[in-house]
Design a protein around this nucleic acid. Structure first.
Lengths: 335, 335
DNA sequence: TAGAATTGTGAAAGCGCTTTCAAAGACTGG
DNA sequence: CCAGTCTTTGAAAGCGCTTTCACAATTCTA
């Protein structure tokens, strides 16, 4: 361990001519201390550039002041946005986030969470993920838990998310309003709740418009770009006609765009394309992508607020964050 | 702090009928212990699902088993790749990474590093960044330090990076070989060493080809997509002719692509475009982007290896990782 | 076989902090 | 003016671990 901030609480006590208890008290503000002593302590603290030892404090108090954050995957634009929000929300608090990466596998997720628990985290934020509800409920019994970008039935007070079904419904409806009737859907991994919800919203909108959903028009992807490319190949191979595509996230829409380019199909002249997330690249696609914006940073920020509230024993309810359809240039009127 | 793994070392000692010293010894493997006792201890450990308390251990040993990682910005594809590499490299070791975000500002970077130091990190990995060499040297005196994606003179043993000058030289030369003579350059923030190195490689290649570098063809961007769009506007406004563009990273190339699209300029028919990084979106651009691949994950992985070696007191030299020109479809023969 | 060298083990002293407990001092009201 | 009540403070007991030290039990050497 690097040797900096070497002064300890007893150095401070000696210099301020008080007991270490008093030093501890002014630092934590738990009890009243005479003004003169308080000032002497604070002066000694700055003079010696005292930095309390996190381990000693953690050991004695049973608090780590650390929040564990489980993400799906570093490098995913949407999840990274959430992380940014968490970081921002914890800024200027005593708490510090540590991150672990679940790599899209529930066993690795669990392992990562346990590794963080071993580091005595005070609270846990889980971003999305594949963990089954039972597992999450078990965790919630052990530690304050907030879930982001996923809704868990019976656990809504600790879920910060948007309504995926509704958002997909709106996105699909946008295409319907433009006159499209044969709308393909590239779903995410269907073992992921987001993927199922978004597919459901798509089907709802289709049916409500009096269109018969066609399973041939639905392709299961895996949320990654490459699967968007393959989805186009599959759709064309099947030989079903379609004039628009709704992809369950922007990355697959991005892949689909490349797949269409390869086939010489123009967007939006030949086909309209809608994504989901509004990740940072969406506005820069050729053409800029129409998509559903999920407020990633805000989601993360809200999650950190909720977990801080839980740690203080408060019962704040998460703000219901709203998604928004962003119409750009990848969609146009049918024919 | 959540109450799990509640068994302590003395519970183990009692159950295995040995002293806590012995338990500590079999756990850390520092001293020989009779086989019978060792087995008794290990059995008790699994029986009670014992998890050593990180704080107690850290306090007593002065080791935190934590590595601090300073990144520029969560959500940047290239930096996130490095982070993935670090995570992977630390996997299955006793060490755990914690991350902080410098937000592209040296004062925030320093603050973030100090916050991690307060958490008693054993080692520090700095990814890129704006911190001046003096500051980094000062830090290196306090704590084992490895720098990724940046070279610091006199500190090469602890720098894991590619040769930016050389890589840019190769990228520019690729355009020259295709017959381009008027090659524009969108640089990064010139207060960042990468930006300067890449500009230098560009100029070297230009001059070596006997072309007079033209300052009108160079635009300073800020490594972000939007600045690529603006750079195109600027270049066209200046009215200088050019047939190719070399952008100092893929994100700006992405922005430039959109800028060209807006002006109705085709890639590569009207203009060739080269990026830098080969971030995960490059292969999916329209058309797929010719770029210089930086092995981000490998860089991060190597950095973690080096820091682990330093912590063991070894003197491993960083592997010299190589960049590679990836020719895709955004470049073609001039005219 | 006596003495030295080695090995395995437990007791105990911290690591730097929080928090309880009790005592000392400062106030109150009757 | 004194018993009773509040405040402020320091001493000391942990928190759960590592590590030194010393001692006892072995093993080795001449």
């Amino acid at each position: 361990m690097a040797t900096r901030g070497n002064a300890t609480i007893s150095d401070i006590a000696r210099r301020a001519e008080v007991s270490i208890s008093t030093v501890s008290r002014v630092l934590s503000g738990t009890t009243k201390v005479t003004d003169a002593k308080r000032r002497a302590v604070l002066e000694a603290v700055t003079d010696l550039n005292y930095q309390p030892n996190v381990f000693a404090r953690g050991l004695a108090s049973g608090q780590s002041l650390t929040i564990g954050v489980l993400t799906q995957n570093f490098g995913s634009p949407f999840y990274d946005g959430i992380i940014q929000g968490v970081v921002r929300g914890l800024n200027r608090t005593d708490y510090f986030p540590i991150f672990a990466d679940g790599q899209w596998r529930s066993d690795i997720e669990l392992e990562a969470i346990l590794a963080m628990m071993r580091r005595q985290i005070d609270g846990l934020i889980v971003i999305g993920g594949f963990l089954v509800p039972e597992e999450l409920e078990k965790l919630a019994r052990d530690i304050p838990l907030v879930i982001v970008a996923r809704r868990l039935a019976g656990f809504e007070e600790n879920c910060v998310c948007i309504d995926n079904v509704q958002a997909s419904y709106v996105a699909t409806q946008h295409l319907i309003e433009l006159g499209h009737r044969r709308i393909a859907h590239i779903s995410g991994r269907l073992d992921h709740p987001d993927a199922r919800d978004r597919q459901q919203g798509y089907i709802m909108a289709i049916e409500e418009a009096g269109i018969q959903p066609n399973p041939e028009l639905i392709i299961e992807g895996n949320f990654r770009r490459q699967s968007g490319v393959l989805a186009i190949d599959m759709l064309l191979l099947r030989g079903v006609a379609f004039s628009a595509i709704f992809a369950a996230n922007d990355q697959m829409a991005h892949g689909a765009r490349l797949g269409l380019y390869r086939r010489g199909l123009r967007v939006p002249e030949d086909l309209s394309l809608v994504g989901f997330d509004d990740d940072s690249a969406a506005a820069f696609m050729i053409p800029p992508l129409t998509t559903v914006r999920q407020p990633a940073v805000e989601l993360g920020h809200e999650a950190s607020k909720i977990i801080l509230a839980r740690l203080k024993g408060e019962t704040a309810s998460p703000a219901r964050l709203k998604s928004e359809l962003i119409v750009r240039e990848s969609t146009s009127i049918h024919r």
